[in-house]
Design a protein around this nucleic acid. Structure first.
Length: 344
DNA sequence: ATTCCACGGGAAAGCATGGACC
DNA sequence: GGTCCATGCTTTCCCGTGGAAT
């Protein structure tokens, strides 16, 4: 108290608004998209099921935020509405997805992992037809087994909101039946934010979360520019800069401070993906990173050299497919001529 | 033209987990 | 407790395919 003036320190008033999972009470710059999603879900208010809706666009454009915002708002209108958020990164196959969806609305004491057949999960879901159910499937392109989509699609009281990066690769993995069923679904495409929009978003977060005058307009521009349209990176940068300012005991976020934390903000996203890999997969990624670009044979030899109990070549090929799907690595060329590049 | 290497689908084996039953 | 069974996940094995190197 005495001696140390508050004015000399940057104060984080509300750290939550700088977290990744924060959902604002109002969404800016996305009115047309919000309306289209709302329209797609509107039949639910009349007791029907909504349209299957895709939210498509690059990372950090607010897809997940929008999906949650709209379903949250719908919940205010529909009393018995059930909702569920599934991240397909974590629940990447049919069983886990169904389990998560069921677990969100019922007590699953009698359902146990592994030893309960998938059909049982599905039947239980079908029986829950007394209330509408909106399911957000995030990062749905990470789903290895699209049967779950087919299953859920076939249940009348369930409405799906599917979130993904790229439409073409997503639909390519679907198979004919599913593709034709989803042909008529609503698609909402979200473009990257421009710099002005990002600055506006950041300004709100600063107003809600930080003390006044803690960051200048020019510095906000800098944060926005470095994020290249990705709001997640922008907010992450702001969060890290605020934290750095706090530990340094200064009252303003400066240009230098932002420049310091930009690399780690960008690396953090990648780091999150790498952390989810198994030790074997991490070694493969490590080898690939050291070379930047590498032929499969050389990659395998080096990998086998580094671990005590190397997996088979076939398994490594599967692993590499996974790394490619996670966009950590790029597979260039077919068959024999293939080379792996690490994605920068 | 032939050989070589890698891909990727599918079948089967091996593993872990949890229930049922004794 | 101990044993057996069902289920799903991972890994390996097998192998047809095809582009690249010789």
């Amino acid at each position: 108290m005495a001696g140390v003036s508050h004015a000399t320190k940057l104060v984080i008033q509300d750290a939550r608004v700088l977290q990744d999972d924060f959902i604002p009470k109002e969404v800016k710059h996305r009115d047309p998209e919000v309306n289209r999603i709302s329209d797609a879900l509107a039949p639910i208010t009349d007791g029907d099921s909504g349209e299957t809706t895709f939210l498509l666009g690059p990372t950090g454009v607010g897809k997940t935020c929008l999906a949650q915002f709209v379903t949250e708002r719908l919940r205010e209108q529909v009393l018995d509405l059930q909702t569920c958020y599934v991240n397909c990164w974590e629940d990447y196959n049919r069983y886990r997805t169904l389990y998560r969806v069921l677990d969100a609305v019922t007590s699953t004491h009698d359902i146990h992992r592994q030893s309960t057949p998938q059909d049982v999960l599905l039947n239980r879901l079908r029986e829950l037809d007394d209330a509408p159910y909106v399911i957000i499937l995030d990062e749905v392109d990470q789903l290895q087994d699209t049967k779950a989509l087919y299953d859920l699609y076939s249940i009348p009281h369930i409405t799906m909101v599917l979130v993904a990066n790229r439409e073409d690769t997503l639909f390519a993995g679907f198979g004919d039946r599913l593709r034709s069923r989803l042909q008529s679904s609503i698609r909402v495409r979200l473009a990257a934010y421009n710099s002005d929009a990002l600055v506006a978003i950041l300004r709100d977060r600063v107003r809600w979360g930080l003390s006044d005058n803690s960051i200048g307009t020019g510095v906000l521009d800098q944060v926005a520019d470095s994020a290249a349209g990705d709001a997640r990176v922008a907010i992450g940068t702001l969060r890290r800069a605020a934290r750095a300012a706090t530990t340094a005991g200064v009252d303003r976020i400066t240009t230098e401070l932002v420049a310091d934390v930009v690399p780690e903000a960008k690396a953090a996203i990648r780091q999150k993906n790498v952390a989810q890999l198994t030790p074997d997969q991490q070694v493969l990624y490590e080898v690939a990173t050291e070379h930047g670009e590498i032929a499969p044979g050389e990659l395998y030899d080096e990998y086998a050299h580094r671990v005590s109990d190397p997996k088979s070549k076939r398994t490594v090929r599967k692993y590499m497919g996974k790394l490619a799907q996670y966009n950590l690595v790029d597979a260039v060329g077919q068959k024999r001529g293939r080379r792996y590049h690490v994605v920068e």
